[in-house]
Amino acid sequence: MIANLFGTEYLVLDDWLAVATKGLSDESAARVTEEIQEHYEESVATLVAEGYRPGGAELETLSRLGSPRRARRGYRREYTTERDVKTFQRYQEELNKMSELGSRLHWREMYVVGTFLLVLFASFMEDKKPEVPLAFPVCMFSVVIGTTAGRIALRLSRRQGRARRFGMYLAVQFLLIWIMAAYIAAISFYTGFLGPFLIFLLFLLFLTIHQYRFWKKIRPILNK
C-alpha cells in the first residue's frame, strides 16, 4: 500500500498480487504473477500514451483489474492450489498402495462396515430384524467385487500414461463412493428415512463437483 499527502492509501501491484495469489501453489502463483505483471505493464504503457500521468495510469490499471479477492476466487477455481498439490500427493501414495493386490484395505473400502451399521440401525428402528443377517453378506459381496475390480484396473493401468492412471484411480474411488450412496438410498427408501439420504446425496454431489474441478486442474500437469 502507498499513501498520499492526505493519508489516503492506494493498492499497488504487489499488494494486488499478494491477495490474488494467496493459497495458490508456487507454480500457479508464478504463472498468475507473470501474466498480471505483463498485463499491468502493457496497460500502463497504453494509458500513458493516451495521456494519463504514470501514477494515474497505474491506479487506473489496478481499478480495471478489479477486486483481487474476486480474482482469487476465479484463480482458485482454475489454477492448482496448495491444497490441490497436497491432495494430489496423498492420492498418488494411495494409488500406489491400492495397486498392490495383497495390501490392506483402504479406509474408503471400509464403507461396508458403515453401511452395515446403518442397515442395523434402520432395521431396529423399523423393527425389521429378519433382514439384518441378509444385509451383511450382500454388502460384503459387493465390496469385494468393487474393490477387486478397482485394484485390477489400477494394476493393468500401470503401463498407461500418468494422467490415464490417475483418472482411473479417481474413477475407482467414485465407483466405491456411489455404490455406498446406492446402498444408503436403498435403505432410506426401504425404511422411509429420506432425510439422511438427501443430505448425503447433496454431500456427494458437492464432492463430485469438487473432484471434477480437481481433475480438470491436475490433468494438464500429468499430461506434461
Binding site: 490474488a20 501474466e35 498485463h39 502493457e42 483489474l65 478489479g66 480474482a71 476465479g74 484463480y75 482454475e78
Partner: peptide, 30 residues
Amino acid sequence: HGYRIAQEIKAKSKGVLDFKEGSLYPALHG
C-alpha cells in the same frame, strides 16, 4: 496476448461488454 484480448472484447462491443480484467486470466486458463 491477454491485454489485447481484453481490449478487443471491449472495443468490438463499443464498451457495452465491460468486465474486470483480472477475471480474464482464469477464463483463459480454463
